[in-house]
Structure formats: C-alpha cells, structure tokens
Design a binder for these strands. Structure first.
Length: 333
DNA sequence: AACGGTCTCAACCGCGGATGG
DNA sequence: CCCATCCGCGGTTGAGACCGT
C-alpha cells in the first residue's frame, strides 16, 4: 500500500506558475504568512495548487532575497568544499550560500559543477579556475568501465579468487583511454589512510613522506598487489567509494591551501581519528560534532613520530600529494 | 529554415523525520 | 508508546530553450 497523496491531484493545477498565481501567493504570504500550515494554505490564499507546490514556489522563487543568475567562483569553491565534506546535503550547503536555494545548488551541481569535475579528471592540465582535485597526470593512460555497471555485477570477493588482471574484469578494456567516474557503494572497507613509514606492506601505497593509502583491493589482483611498485612508474587502478575519494579531494585541497599559506585546520588529528575509527568522517572533515576539536599536534607513538608528515606532504607536494601519484580512483554507480 | 539532440531548471514525487494529540 | 499529519529534503522528471547540422 502506497502513501496517501498530500492532496487530490485531479483538483489542483500543476505545472508552471502564472504571474497571477505568483502575485496571489506573494501577496497573501506578505500579509498573513503561511499560517504555519502549507497544506491548508492554498485554500486560504485562493490558489488551486497543492500546498507543497505553494511552499516550493515560495521558497525557491518568490521569497525575498533570492539570488538568481550565475554562481561566483567563491560560491563554486564553497560548494565543492562542502560537497566533498558532506555530500549531497543541499539544504546544508545552501545555508552557507545566502540567497541560494538548495534546489538551485542541486541543479547547478548536476548540470555544471559535476561535469567540470569530470572533465578536470580527464584533462591532465586543466585550465579551469575551480578546484581540480581529480587532475591526474596520467589520466590518458587508464582504462575504465565502458558503461555503467550495476554495483552487484562487480564483486572481486566472490568472482575473482584467481586474481584476474583488472583489465579483464567486467567492463574494462585494454584500449580504452577515457576516464569516467563511477561510484561503487560496495567497497567502503577497501580503502583507508594512515601515516606510516612501513614501505614493506604490499597493501600500502606509500608516499615519500610516509603517508600510506591502505587498500585491500589489491589482494585480489596479482598484477596490482603492490601499489608501491606501481607508483614507481606504472599505472595503478583502485576502486574507491565516493566518500573516500571525496576525502582524498579534501586532503589534497587542504594540502594545496597549506602550500599557499592557508590557515587550514585539517591536519593530522583528523587522519588519526579517521584511520583509528574514532570518529565520523563527515564530522571530522566538516569540523562539527564531537570530533571537531581534535588536537592537531598529535599524541601517542604513531602520531607523535609522524606529526609532521602532513606538512611534509605539503612541502613535498610533487612526491607527496596522493592525487599526483599514479593512483587512479574509479567510481561506480 | 527545419530538425533532432542536448541542456537547463522549475516543478514534482515520495520518503524520513519531527511533532503533537 | 502509537498514530496521524505535516514539513523538509534529495532524487527525478519533463517542457522549453538552446545548439549543431
């Protein structure tokens, strides 16, 4: 049994609003407000519309101080940062952009920003002024799934005990030189970050500063069982959950900002708590919640001994920045 | 000019959560 | 607690605008 509709669809007008309807809606709200109840609002205001439709029209279009028109670069930057931190929480993102509605931002993301993000990932030297965290110097030298793959169709844990080369797995073709991001929601567990100087771990992708990208996926592919060997010159491929790659975006972005003297607060404590499973990733990145005040100095043997590794990453960006390594994330959807 | 494909964005839909009786 | 109602959100749709041929 489905949910009861909020109103009788046969008795209300649908589709675009006329200037007369707009005027009625605006006039009534300016005079009386919505009366605390959108459902009964149309009757009171003399509109043959669904209450939800009235609410939407008011909030997204008629309400005062709504900003229409192009987004600024600063707004782009804020959207990128917040999306990286919290995902598609459009209402929260909108709260950081006065005059913009969640619907506006959602549309803008879906039609413009996401495409820019994708094109930046396939363009090794993007000239775009927006953050380009997906820029990958070897992006022309990778394979991708040819078409959208259902998440369940790709499961190396079940299908691939023989460690087949990644290029033979569903959808990959050797000669495919394009990149297309997908999101695979299945493999959150396959990736984590840590700060370590242990380069002997085959499941680590180690930057020169001792920063490690731990991944279990490589267990499943004999030709990718060691990222450290791959980064010495050959391509690496890795499956990542969207949230994970967004985290890397944030890291790279913050490292970027640090190199420019930005007074960033995204430092080691966040990593440590993330990799130790102590905190909520979103809270850590967005700086909210109980993990927002984690001290950055580091404590305990591991973090104390590597307290400067994030700084090292910043200072040795060419060798240290994750996304400049030949480690390409694939997205699945 | 005509046509078809693509893009944009206002509007819709249905769900989850909050609230109050 | 349970249930009904409403609100707010995020995903999706589709009409019209735009663009390339």
């Amino acid at each position: 049994m489905g949910r009861a509709p909020c109103c009788d669809k046969t008795k209300v007008k649908r589709g675009p609003w006329s200037p007369e309807e707009d005027s009625k809606l605006r006039g009534y709200i300016e005079k009386y407000g919505n009366g605390g109840n959108w459902i009964s609002f149309p009757l009171k205001a003399g509109l043959r519309r669904c209450g939800k439709s009235c609410r939407l029209r008011w909030l997204n279009y008629l309400r005062p101080n709504i900003k229409h028109g192009d987004f600024s670069e600063e707004e782009d930057r804020i959207i990128f940062s917040l999306f990286a931190a919290i995902g598609s929480r459009w209402s929260i993102i909108a709260a950081h952009l006065p005059g913009r509605t969640d619907n506006d931002i959602k549309n803008y993301w879906n039609t413009k920003l996401r495409k820019r993000l994708l094109s930046s990932s396939s363009s090794p030297h993007s000239s775009s002024s927006m953050p380009s965290p997906f820029v990958n110097p070897i992006s022309q030298d990778v394979k991708r799934p040819l078409t959208t793959i259902a998440p369940s169709s790709y499961n190396p844990y079940v299908v691939s005990p023989t460690k087949a080369p990644i290029s033979t797995i569903n959808g990959f073709e050797t000669d495919d030189h394009q990149i297309f991001p997908f999101v695979n929601p299945n493999y959150l567990q396959d990736l984590s970050l840590s700060e370590s100087n242990n380069n002997n771990n085959n499941n680590n992708f180690s930057g020169s500063s001792g920063f490690s990208l731990n991944h279990n996926m490589c267990d499943h592919y004999s030709n990718h069982n060691s990222f450290s060997s791959d980064v010495s010159g050959n391509r690496s491929e890795i499956m990542m959950k969207q949230e994970e790659i967004m985290m890397l975006m944030m890291i790279d972005n913050h490292i970027d900002q640090r190199t420019k003297g930005y007074n960033g607060d995204f430092t080691q404590g966040y990593y440590s708590n993330y990799i130790n499973g102590h905190g909520d990733l979103k809270q850590m990145i967005s700086g909210t919640g109980t993990n927002s005040n984690i001290n950055m100095g580091g404590s305990g043997s591991e973090s104390a001994s590597s307290s400067s590794s994030i700084s090292n990453l910043a200072e040795n960006k060419i060798s240290g920045s994750l996304l400049q390594h030949k480690c390409l994330p694939y997205f699945y959807s």
